[in-house]
Design a protein around this nucleic acid. Sequence first.
DNA 1: TTTCTGACA
DNA 2: TGTCAGAA
Length: 121
Amino acid sequence: MQEVARQLGVTHRALRFYEDKGLIEPERVGSMRIYSRRDVGRMQLILRGKRLGFSLREIQEFLDLYDADPEHVEQMIRLAGRVRERLLDLEKQQVALEETIRELRQIEHDAMARVKTARGR
DNA sequence: TTTCTGACA
DNA sequence: TGTCAGAA
């Protein structure tokens, strides 16, 4: 099992966490977990979703649809919607970041100006 | 609150 | 392995 975790670049604890959340459901042999190719595939989708900033909850909805809708039509519609929301969110953050950067630059500028004044230059 | 991690049995 | 406490 540490093999699957290492291969995916996550800890076994994270795999357990995703299982608890219902994102993956590895087969059990006794108390041991068997991760199928399907589980590994789902994990890769989960990791990708995480990289793109989606919550596990959103990722779970997406995975559920993947199972429920063989044509993936509804899934793609929902996905496109989520992606749009995510983009809007990131764009807002971008604006906020730019504002923060401008403010910090101004503070730096003012601070240096005072130093020069204090030194009598 | 969400997403984990560490530790203990 | 399961579970609880806690970090970020």
